[in-house]
């Protein structure tokens, strides 16, 4: 066992308490009380960082919030939400979620399976190369992508495009290329992380299962389908859930290309819309109302996803 002086001291300290003053502090050491001590940081943070703001967001969504002047205005914030700008933001965000989830789940599974196989040499180097983009902050990544996807013919992306005989593209000024930029940026950054999650899960597949599958004469695809995939299911649920939620949270991937306003709102996300209205226009009540609507959408989508994948079934087989 690890012999760490700090933990030893803690251990002594806590056993001292138990044996010398059993009447006062012994209850803290009971199997019934200890778990509550352990989870208390979570409870406190839940109250301050989730429950309070949720209630407050709900209240604010029925208010006009001006500095020093707050008044209830009923449902009128909600009535204003369903406007063309919001629907455009929601459409952009939804497309972004779909693209990123598909790309960031399917490709990482394939890459992880190959990296785990005997086919690939230099595994460590490939794994590291894939992971390095996730170390960049979004601002740095955005700086790089803006330079790579610049409008001029001399930027890398356009050099490649024109090499294939196509016209140079104004990447940041078309609706389709705006989505392409945001999805590419996110995929580039998060691919390696998801590969790591799947690689770790692959370590838990017992090698004997492959051997017995071999004896049964299973081919590569059958082994993948019936041995590998079932073991990857829990981690896949985890990655899909996180990807969906992170997708709906998208703001920065747009910010780095257009700051807070893009031409024709081609890069506007729902969170970006909240930022515009709640912070820049200082209309916090309206911003809060958009937030509540987005929260309901995310819950609905995540819930359906978790039920479809059976994540709520007990996992202690």
């Amino acid at each position: 066992m690890v012999n760490d002086p700090i933990t030893n001291k803690l251990e002594e300290a806590s056993s001292d308490r138990v044996y010398k003053k059993p009447s006062k502090l012994a209850f803290l050491n009971s199997k019934k009380v200890a778990p509550y001590v352990f989870i208390s940081p979570f409870i406190i943070s839940f109250l301050i960082l989730t429950l309070y703001p949720t209630i407050q967001a709900f209240i604010m969504s029925f208010q006009r919030v001006l500095p020093g002047n707050v008044e209830f205005i009923g449902l009128s914030n909600y009535e204003r939400i369903f406007n063309p700008t919001f629907f455009l933001a929601l459409k952009n965000t939804t497309l972004y979620v779909i693209f990123t989830v598909v790309i960031l789940v399917v490709i990482p599974i394939l890459l992880a399976v190959f990296l785990d196989s005997k086919l690939v040499r230099f595994k460590t180097i490939f794994r590291a190369s894939l992971f390095i983009p996730s170390l960049t902050s979004i601002i740095v990544a955005g700086t790089i992508f803006r330079m790579m996807f610049g409008e001029s013919d001399t930027a890398v992306a356009n050099q490649v495009v024109t090499f294939f005989g196509l016209e140079a593209i104004d990447w940041r000024y078309n609706s389709w290329s705006a989505m392409f930029l945001m999805v590419t940026l996110a995929s580039w950054r998060w691919m390696g992380v998801n590969v790591l999650y799947f690689l770790a899960a692959l370590q838990s597949v017992p090698k004997e299962l492959y051997e017995s599958a071999d004896i049964d004469g299973a081919n590569v695809f059958k082994k993948f389908r019936y041995v590998t995939l079932p073991f990857l299911k829990p981690i896949t649920i985890f990655v899909v859930t996180i990807s969906i939620i992170n997708g709906f949270r998208m703001f920065e991937e747009s910010f780095v290309f257009w700051e807070t306003s893009s031409p024709g709102n081609i890069g506007l996300s729902v969170i970006g819309y909240i930022y515009q209205e709640g912070i820049q226009q200082n209309d916090m009540g309206f911003g809060a109302a958009i937030g509540i609507v987005l929260m309901l959408i995310i819950f609905a989508v995540s819930f359906i996803q978790l039920i479809l994948t059976g994540a709520f079934k007990r996992s202690d087989e």
């Binding site: 979570f42 839940f46 909240i274 929260m295 995310i298 995540s302």
Partner: peptide, 29 residues
């Protein structure tokens, strides 16, 4: 312990609540 499943559900719930939605009230706080 009592309430364990409830707490775990809360954890999943918070993972599902995007921080950005709560940021306006927190910012006000």
């Amino acid at each position: 312990f009592k309430g364990k499943n409830f707490i775990f559900t809360l954890v999943l719930f918070i993972i599902m609540v995007p921080f950005e939605i709560l940021m306006l009230p927190l910012y006000k706080l």
